[in-house]
Amino acid sequence: MTQVLYITGAGVSAESGIPTFRGEDGYWTIGSKNYTPQQMATRAMYEHNPGQFLQWYYHRFVTYRHHGPNPVHHWLADKTLITQNIDGLDGKAGNPDYIAIHGRLDEVTYYHQQGEEVARFKAPWDEVDESALEASLLALFKIGRSGPKLNESLKPYVLLFDEYYTELYQISRAQRLMQNADKMVFMGTSFSVNITNMALEIARSNDIAIEIVDPQPAHVLHARSHYHRMTAQQYIETYGAVDT
C-alpha cells in the first residue's frame, strides 16, 4: 500500500474562516501598534514583554478557537498528517494521531528551557476576563512583574520564530514519516517555513514524488513534482475517492 504523507498549511483552514498567514488580514500581516508580527511571535517578546505578547496572541489566534473543521479536515481525518496549523481543527475533525508540528492553540506548557521534557495541558482561554485583558492573561499565565518564571509560568504551546523544533513538537516522528513516505502531498502551504523545506529536501534525497495543492502554488526544485492549481476543497472533490 502506498504510504502518502499529507503536509498542510494555513490554506486548508481558510474555509473555516481562519485567516491565512500572509493575506490581507493574515496572522503575519497584522501586528500591534509598536511591533511587527515577526517581533511579536517570539520567545524574546514573551520573556521581556509578556503582556503585549499575550494580548497579541489572544487577538490574533485565540479569538478563532471555537471555529469548526471544514470538509478538508474531515477528509484528512484518517490520513497520515503533519500540519503547520495551530488551530486544532484536525483534532476536532477526528484525526487521532496527527502531528501539530508548530503546536496547538488549545494547549499550554510550563515555561521551560527548549529541549526539556514538559507536559502539555488545556489552555485557560475561557477563563479570560476581556474587560481587563492584560491583567487577566498575566494572572492566568502566572506571570508576575519580574516576567515569566521557569517551570512555574505558563506559555502557549506554540513554536515561536526564535525557537527550534524539539521533541515537544514531535520532530523526530515527523522526520520518520517523511523518510518512510512513498509520496508527499503539500496542501495550502507557501513553503516558507522550515518544516516544508525539510520535507522537500528529504523528498529530493529519497526521490519521493510530491504533489502541491494551492491556487497559486510555490514552484519548487524537484523533478518529481506535480502541481494542482486549486484549493484543498477542490482537490478533495476531484481526487477524494482515491489517493492520487
Rank of each mutant, 00 (worst) to 15 (best):
Asp126Pro: 01
Gly68Thr: 13
Ser131Glu: 14
Asp78His: 13
His74Phe: 11
Gly88Arg: 04
Leu150Trp: 13
Gln55Phe: 01
Pro96Lys: 06
Lys79Val: 00
Gly91Met: 07
Asn85Ile: 05
Ala93Phe: 02
Pro148Met: 15
His67Ile: 04
Ala135Gly: 07
Tyr58Phe: 15
Ser146Cys: 09
Leu140Glu: 09
Val128Ala: 05
Gly68Arg: 12
Leu140Ser: 08
Ala139His: 14
His73Val: 08
Tyr57Ile: 11
Leu137Arg: 03
Ala132Leu: 07
Glu116Pro: 00
Gly94Trp: 04
Asn70Leu: 03
Asn151Lys: 15
His67Ser: 10
Leu81Met: 01
Val72Thr: 08
Thr63Cys: 11
Asn70Cys: 03
Leu150Gly: 07
Pro69Gly: 15
Arg60Cys: 03
His102Ala: 09
Asn95Arg: 04
Arg65Met: 12
Leu105Gly: 03
Pro96Ser: 06
Thr109Ala: 11
His74Val: 08
Val62Trp: 00
Gln84Arg: 04
Gln55Thr: 14
Gly103Asn: 02
Lys142Asp: 12
Leu89Gly: 07
Gly91Lys: 10
Ile101Thr: 03
Arg104Gln: 15
Ile99Lys: 04
Asp106Phe: 01
Phe141Thr: 08
Thr109Ile: 12
Gly103Leu: 00
Asp106Arg: 01
Leu137Gly: 08
Gln113Asn: 12
Lys92Pro: 07
Val128His: 05
Pro124His: 11
Arg104Gly: 05
His102Thr: 08
Thr80Cys: 08
Ile82Met: 01
Glu116Ser: 14
Trp75Cys: 04
Asp90Gly: 10
Asp129Gln: 13
Pro71Lys: 11
Thr83Pro: 00
His73Phe: 09
Val72Tyr: 03
Tyr64Leu: 05
Ile86Ser: 02
Ala132Met: 08
Ala100Asn: 11
Tyr110Phe: 15
Asn70Ile: 04
Glu127Val: 08
Asp106Trp: 01
Gly115Gln: 10
Gln84Ala: 10
Tyr98Asp: 10
Phe121Ser: 09
Val118Arg: 07
Glu117Gly: 09
Lys92Glu: 14
Gly144Asn: 15
Thr83His: 01
Tyr57Arg: 11
Gly115Glu: 10
Ala100Lys: 10
Val108Gly: 07
Phe121Trp: 11
Leu133His: 08
Pro148Val: 15
